[in-house]
Nucleic acid binder design. Structure first.
Lengths: 254, 254
DNA sequence: GGGTATTTGTCCGTATGTATT
DNA sequence: AAATACATACGGACAAATACC
């Protein structure tokens, strides 16, 4: 019923998932598989393509095809004290892997940008408005973990004198702490919206994942609200979906 | 620099994303693309494969290759009152699309199952323990939305007489309400863990998505806790990532 | 460093099958 | 039934990456 390349793919898949070919092991070469299944090389390659698309194997030119090892995922916590002001910049995510792991952050890149589309809509500013953008790269134990960009409406700088926002220096006590302590602007809640999409070129390069969309990324929009229900900032966080899990705690959890 | 099929893919992609080929429109046939780019049919097909893998187009045998339309995503809310007892069964997700949309639920399939692996670990029962499994299919406006299975430790039935759990009838007032009102067992919090993976065969068939892993699914593990910090149930929800967004509200949000 | 063997990647041409109109 | 369009499968040739001597 199934055609030949699917049969070959199914057979290899069973051998991988059944433990006959453990993670890290090398598959037979395409030539060997041709002989084993009495198929042409292109047919064998079609079968292997099924496995790579499902994230089971990886082909390395000049070396062979290898069974992928599943790595221990990072855990990012999306819930926290909405009034919290501590933390290093617009930190949203905590890393709770059992083995530990040290998060590090790149220097903050600060820009004035034009905000359009759904981002402008999320921050409730006019299409094409100027905003302050603060961008960071985040790593855990040296491996790329997340890309994070926060957008602040210009009124915070223009009308409420949040001048440190537009300086290209880290705000070590945290932006929310700065706004609360120096300006009396307090975050009382936030809303996250989580989607999954294919990575952009730059994201694939940073995370060291294939740029063809086989591995997708989480895209998290976090909108923060102040006491008046006004939107304080929009933070967009991107993390590769193959090495991250999101955790949400509600109520009383041990 | 880039090889030919990548150049063709890039050219087509720019035309799609630039609006030259709007969603729903048909691409030139493979023969026409062969002539246009002076490439062989296999090379043209390789280029199209890049686009299908990125979720930009869809090929239909006998018809042609079409630019996909992005559908309005469903929004599922992961946060709610941890003490809430109302609701139809193990409901976790609310649908908040602007245009409305009527959620419907299949009848509940109840089974006694053996729980193993990470599911047993999540519910903190011994590997290979028997549990009660209650499974539902959920739709919105008739389109498949989510698959949901809840697992309850057998002690609820054996020691605490939650006999209705093992009856194959819907518990219309909600399982949590039943446990609270009849047995005095109260949920005080829960923890969600969100991952993304390729769909299984049955899931792809139910959601009507390709079974080759191009479209991935959210897999949400929800563990519910009672006042003693014991685990009341594990609910596993699967929903296709191409038509769903997850929303998390923390603190005071308008 | 250089050369060679191995292995996967790209590209071509052709033939036939299957789904749709 | 016929035409159209994509899917599968074969064969071959050369390129590019890697490993090894």
């Amino acid at each position: 019923m199934a055609v030949m390349y699917q049969q070959i793919a199914g057979d290899l898949r069973r051998k991988i998932e059944g433990g006959d070919m453990p993670p890290g092991s090398r598959l037979p070469t395409e030539i060997e598989l041709m002989e084993k299944y009495a198929a042409s090389r292109n047919t064998v390659r079609d079968a292997i393509k099924v496995l790579t698309n499902r994230g089971l194997v990886e082909t390395r030119p000049g070396q062979g095809t290898y069974v992928l090892k599943s790595r221990e995922p990072f855990v990012s916590i999306l819930t926290g004290d909405p009034h919290a002001t501590k933390g290093e910049g617009p930190v949203q995510y905590e890393q709770v892997r059992a083995g530990g792991g040290v998060p590090t952050v790149s220097g903050t890149r600060v820009e004035i940008q034009i905000l359009t589309g759904i981002k402008a809509e999320a921050l409730r500013v006019d299409e094409g408005s100027q905003v302050v953008s603060r961008h960071q790269q985040r790593f855990i134990d040296g491996t790329p973990w997340s890309l994070q960009t926060s957008f602040y409406p210009m009124r915070l700088v223009a009308e409420q004198n949040a001048s440190r926002l537009i300086q290209a220096t880290d705000i070590t006590e945290g932006v929310m702490a700065y706004l609360a302590n120096d300006l009396g602007i307090k975050q009382v809640g936030y809303r996250d919206s989580v989607a999954v999409r294919a990575p952009e070129e730059a994201e694939a390069a940073f995370f060291e994942i294939p740029s063809d969309g086989r591995v997708s990324v989480f895209e998290i929009f976090r909108v923060a609200f102040d006491e008046n229900g006004d939107r304080l900032r929009l933070t967009v966080t991107v993390l590769p979906a193959d090495r991250n899990r999101l955790q949400i705690n509600v109520g009383q959890v041990p």
